[in-house]
Structure formats: C-alpha cells, structure tokens
Amino acid sequence: MIIGLTGGIGSGKTAAANRFAAEHGIHVVDADLKSRVVVEPGKPALSYIVDRFGDAILLDDGNLNRAALRERVFAEPQERQWLEQLLHPLIREEIMTDLQSARSPYALLVSPLLVESGQNTLTKRIIVVDVPEAMQLARTVQRDAVPEAQVRAIMQAQAQREERLRHAHDVLTNDSDLAALHAQVDALHQRYLKLLESQA
C-alpha cells in the first residue's frame, strides 16, 4: 500500500515523514529529493534547463542554482509549466523505482504537489499535513530566509488549502508543537496497520 503525504510549503511534511521513518521504520520516498536527482550535473534535464535559461542558472560548481530557477519560474507561469512538463515524468520514474524497493508494511510518498502533479494516482490514501496559512507563511520565511512575496507565489502555485483537504483521507493538524504532531503520526500508523490486517 502506498500512502501519499502532502501539504503546503512550511506545513511540516518533513517532520511528519521523519516520524513515520524513524519511529515506525516506514519506507519514505520524497518527491522533492527526486526532483533534485533528475537535475544533477550530467543528467539530460539539466542541459535542457541551461539551454532555456542560460549558464546564469548554474552555480560555480556546475550544479543547478535552485534559488535562481525558482525565482524565474515563479515570476513567469509559462516557464513554470515548461519546467513541470520536463521534470514531472522524470521524477515519477525515479519515484516508481524507489517505491518498488519498499519492504515496510506500507510506503509513504511525500510530495508538495501530490495532487497537482498527478502523483496521487500512485496512492491508496492521502494524508494532508494541515496548518493555517499565516503560520505556513511565517515558518517558511523564517526557515528559508526568503521574501514573503516569494513564499506567497509558491503558495499560489500549490493547491489551495481547501482543495488539498478535499482529497484527504487523513489530516495531521500541525498548529501546535512537535510532540502533538508525533502523537497524531503514531495513531495513524496504528490505524494503517489495522487497515492492512483487515485487507490481508
């Protein structure tokens, strides 16, 4: 069983996923990490990106300057669409390969664009990490040290909170502390084990 885990930027997806992995031994596949793998130096996607945006999109060591790229694509919607069409199929391939190697009772696919990218078609259930938008904004500005306007642009590109919640089978409310989030994760894990038992 593959369970999707999603939430807006700064919602606490990573904290939730880490708890599933560290405490319960669940195999976690992170779509964001896969999106980095497909643009590593030497990968075809990186040369396409350089052809389109120029060498200024690279760091001195030849790696992709993700901050510069993010600035470009969130300022121009058609550039973001071009980038998504290039990367989404490649990322999906990486995700599939990783998921097939899972040995835990179920696997977790963590993706900020789970619904928007169609990755939710790979999953049986969807967990949404939910947090008030003001908190999301404040956490991200503080964590990434980026301007509020840039965070707002990213939030606009992601599914709106209501839209995400509409797809949710399970919701983790992350408006308190880490202990509260962990307790919710632990309870969900037990529920999934029971669900798997009943399906066996």
Results as ranks from 00 to 15, higher is better:
Ile3Asn: 00
Ile3Trp: 06
Leu5Thr: 00
Gly10Cys: 05
Gly10Pro: 03
Ser11Phe: 11
Thr14Cys: 01
Thr14Asp: 04
Ala15Ile: 12
Ala16Phe: 04
Ala16Thr: 08
Ala21Gln: 09
Ala21Trp: 07
Glu23Gln: 15
Glu23Cys: 14
Gly25Tyr: 11
Ile26Leu: 13
Asp30Phe: 08
Asp32Val: 11
Leu33Asp: 04
Ser35Asp: 02
Arg36Met: 08
Glu40Phe: 13
Pro41Trp: 15
Gly42Met: 07
Leu46His: 12
Ile49Gln: 02
Ile49Cys: 02
Val50His: 09
Asp51Phe: 12
Arg52Asn: 12
Phe53Val: 00
Asp55Glu: 14
Ala56Pro: 02
Ala56Ile: 11
Leu59Phe: 07
Gly62Gln: 01
Asn63Tyr: 14
Asn63Arg: 13
Leu64Met: 02
Asn65Lys: 05
Arg66Asn: 01
Arg66Gln: 02
Ala68Arg: 08
Ala68Gln: 06
Leu69Pro: 10
Ala75Met: 03
Pro77Gly: 06
Glu79Gly: 04
Glu79Thr: 04
Arg80Asn: 12
Gln81Leu: 08
Gln81His: 10
Leu87Phe: 09
Leu87Lys: 01
Leu90Ile: 06
Leu90Asn: 01
Ile91Gly: 05
Arg92Leu: 08
Arg92Gly: 04
Glu93Phe: 10
Glu94Ile: 08
Met96Gly: 04
Met96Glu: 13
Thr97Lys: 15
Tyr106Val: 02
Val110Ile: 11
Val110Cys: 07
Ser111Ile: 01
Leu114Thr: 05
Val115Gly: 01
Val115Asn: 00
Glu116Ala: 13
Ser117Asp: 09
Asn120Glu: 07
Lys124Gly: 13
Ile127Pro: 02
Val129Ser: 01
Val131Met: 01
Glu133Val: 14
Ala134Cys: 06
Met135Tyr: 04
Gln136Val: 12
Gln136Ile: 13
Val141Gly: 05
Asp144Tyr: 14
Val146Pro: 01
Pro147Lys: 07
Pro147Met: 11
Ala149His: 13
Val151Thr: 04
Val151Phe: 09
Ala153Gln: 14
Ile154Tyr: 12
Ala157Gln: 06
Ala157Ile: 12
Gln158Ser: 09
Gln158Glu: 10
Ala159His: 08
Gln160Arg: 12
Glu163Cys: 03
Arg164Met: 10
Arg164Trp: 09
Arg166His: 15
His167Gln: 13
His167Glu: 09
Ala168Met: 10
His169Cys: 01
Asp170Val: 13
Thr173Pro: 00
Thr173Phe: 14
Asn174Ile: 05
Leu178Trp: 07
Leu181Ser: 03
Leu181Ala: 04
Leu181His: 02
Val185Glu: 06
Ala187Cys: 03
Gln190Cys: 12
Gln190Glu: 15
Arg191Asp: 07
Leu193Tyr: 07
Leu196Ser: 03
Glu197Met: 02
Ala200Met: 13
